[in-house]
Amino acid sequence: GRPDDVRAILERISGAEAMPPSPAEQAVLVRYVAELRAQPRAHRTFNDRWSAWIAYRDGPNGLRARP
């Protein structure tokens, strides 16, 4: 559900040689984060947390993948 403009800015600034966000781009990001923070905290069940932990453990850089 990330808005297109936010996604575009994050893609543009990713990468070692990319320029940091302009003031206008920063304003878009700040507004997006402020909108998110105005919402109530997401309710996460135990299952959600457990699945996230398993994905972290078994992911490409997870604990299991380490030699």
Partner: peptide, 20 residues
């Protein structure tokens, strides 16, 4: 600059994780 950019990215993804 790289630190600032990663801080921005982390702030956005943290807010999404907590509130979406």
């Amino acid at each position: 600059v790289a630190g600032i950019k990663s801080q921005i990215t982390r702030a956005v993804s943290d807010a999404e994780k907590t509130h979406l």
